[in-house]
Amino acid sequence: MSLTQLRPSPQHAAPPPKPNRAKLWLYRFDTKATPYIFIAPFFIIFTIFGLFPIIFNAIVSLRTWRLDDPDKDGWAGFDNFSKLLSDSDFWNALYNTIGIFILSTVPQLLLALILANLLNRKLSGQTFWRIGILLPYLTPVVASTLVFAVFFARDSGMANWFLSLVGYGQEQPLDWRADKWSSWIAIATMVNWKWIGYNALLYLSAMQAIPKDVYEAAAVDGAGPWRQLWRITVPMIQPVVVFTVILSTIGGLQLFNEPMMFDENPQSASGGSAHQFQTIAVMIYKVGWKDLNLGYAAAISWALFLLILIVAAINATLTKRIGGDR
């Protein structure tokens, strides 16, 4: 704004030395067009890598596109979407996705909050702990999932060894992949392990911006640490909470690597012998690259996109209410 005010408008320009036309054009170009050029790279890249795939995907979802049957290519209207509504695999995948999402997101953010609160105190080796909790985030997800797959193995897995310490599964060790509840817990554990530290650091950075005197005043008024956390810290870091909630909603609903690699036979992308833990993202992969039905896969992708929009909106509204109405 200050720049535009400083600029003499053309009417008030001193007339005596006739304005150089080229210079004037350059001047105008500089003030009018340059800002757009500066922001253009983002929009160009977004159009190519963000907008185009979304639109292309929408077009594909309205077509029949089968790699194993090239002759069938053509417009399909809403066939793929109506197939989706009657596909029990899709509803099962939706159920799994939401189940694993709740099991992973809620404990993840709560634990991250508590962890951040602990790290916000005076500790010896503060930097060590703060960096330490970020390590799981730095581990490549494929590597960590492979380790977890062995951890949750039926025979001689470490998880079953822990269970045997409390006397569970002596005769028949728990097959983590066999049932919905056990496979969901295993997958949610992987997600939580990876993301708790990352979210804790985000919370921590926001907490450091809260003035200390607020806490002092609360302490004088007799508020304990738990009450301080919920009544002062959480409302004051609320924007960051909303951010992490939306981010983990997107990540949680798109869950792919963990259920894919956890499978006994990852090549099949079936998410367990009876699709116990097949998430929507895994189903998209299976339909697209195993059944070779790209049109239907695109339709499921769009359903997932809509689902994420809805859940993210609900979560954001709920989270805003936590702090805002107090």
């Binding site: 097959d175 066999a178 099949s268 079936s270 012998s273 009876a274």
Partner: peptide, 12 residues
């Protein structure tokens, strides 16, 4: 079909 065999082996 392999998945069905696995379900039997898992006792499901």
């Amino acid at each position: 079909v392999e998945n069905v065999i696995t379900q039997v082996q898992q006792g499901k």
